[in-house]
Design a protein around this nucleic acid. Structure first.
Ligand SMILES: [Mn+2]
Ligand SMILES: [Mn+2]
Ligand SMILES: [Mn+2]
Ligand SMILES: [Mn+2]
Lengths: 219, 219
DNA sequence: TAATTAATTTAGATTAGTCTAAAAATATTT
DNA sequence: AAATATTTTTAGACTAATCTAAATTAATTA
């Protein structure tokens, strides 16, 4: 089995590849893992030895099919655990991530398949991120940030980009949650800030910075 | 926080102290942990530095109050997770231990208090072992091995001594489970083997070796 | 009590993961 | 195309946990 640490590296590389980058740099990984470039280079050699990544000195890395499968398994476990914590144990969406970071490394196929069943096979986690199935298949939502919609568009919130506790707590306090209907009432030209109406009831003013971090689809 | 490994040492020492031994020997720990005496000595020094155990060269060890609290917390988590796996995820009682060995090290107070609540504050785990409460308090059962009962005694199964999967599977196959009523129909003088009646229905013959590993109280 | 045996500790290595500082390679400017 | 800046890798060291082999202490036996 892959170590706790290896799993975290694979997950980090997966997410960097996912967000555009074709070959991921040593520095990018170091930043994402809050570690130093020298440590990353050491680990990359080990992961390459195990055929989990494609790596040639100075050329950046990508996941092999084997490495991608491993990464997707960790992500599947993380997101299922987040869902479990929220649905069954009354955690709030800003509390689940840190615990899931630990639980995602528990090694038991039966455990995770039973959790999946217990939750009735959810397709998305509490932040709107897709949960890979047993085979690593992902069901993508074609949503975009609400900052990209126009005046009078009516959309449904499907996810968040920023996953930090402070951002999620701000959304809670503002009455924003997954599934909410949002109408773009007005767009301020100067700074792209938005006036929105939530569920046809309350109105709210949000900055462009916030708007860029809320994902939605047209209703 | 204590490392994964430290927690396992503390748990091992706790269980050795629990089963009679006053000061636990290096060799006993090595055997229980499936490691070597030299490794144990190294670890004992570290645990002593952290004031988790009382240790003087060649004199054996015991837990300090701080060490005992830590051990009981791990045991509480282990047994709650076993209960969760069995009650909520349809694991069998011979399948829960290995996964609980991993889950017991997850560090989150909220997680464990919510699991406890979710299970409705169970007092005993799937093997009949007591689950320490938040403060480390244990509710002991005054049960003894059915090998110690006499002919015509009627008792209720409350736990097992041996926790191995093979023993538990043997009990399953024989129709023996926690809560069952057992009548000692006959005791064979020669080898102390027993004829028993389960729930007033089926009769079964068990060896003294088996009888010593089944705990029960008089009905 | 002395000799022998058993238990425990120390010494010295090893492995995984990390770090800092220095060297080497690549990318960017001039 | 050189010079400079940036990125990446290497070298060497550190910690936690482990091991084998040797030394030391304690326990048992004669
Ligand atoms: Mn998360
Ligand atoms: Mn999530
Ligand atoms: Mn167990
Ligand atoms: Mn148990």
């Amino acid at each position: 089995m892959n170590s706790f640490t290896s799993e975290n590296y694979l997950k980090a590389i997966y997410k960097l590849v996912e967000h555009g980058n074709d070959a991921v740099s040593t520095n990018a990984i170091a930043q994402k893992m809050s570690t130093k470039a020298a440590s990353v280079t050491d680990m990359l050699k080990k992961l390459a030895d195990k055929k989990l990544i494609n790596y040639q000195k100075y050329q950046g890395v990508s996941l092999t099919p084997k490495g991608e499968k491993a990464a997707l398994t960790v992500i599947r476990k993380h997101r299922l655990w987040e869902m479990f914590l929220m649905e069954k144990l009354d955690f709030k969406w800003d509390e689940v991530h840190d615990v899931a970071e630990q639980l995602e490394h528990i090694d038991s196929e039966k455990l995770i398949s039973q959790i999946d069943k217990f939750l009735n096979y959810p397709k998305f986690d509490p932040h709107g991120d897709p949960i890979p199935d047993m085979n690593g298949k992902i069901q993508q939502q074609k949503s975009k940030a609400i900052s990209k919609y126009k005046k009078n568009d009516i959309v449904k919130i499907t996810g968040v980009v920023d996953h930090s506790a402070s951002f999620l707590q701000y959304l809670d306090k503002s009455g924003l949650a997954l599934g909410n209907e949002i109408k773009i009432k007005d767009v301020v030209e100067f700074d792209r800030s938005l006036h929105i109406v939530i569920n046809k009831r309350s109105t709210l003013f949000i900055s462009n910075d916030v708007a860029k971090n809320i994902l939605a689809i047209t209703k």
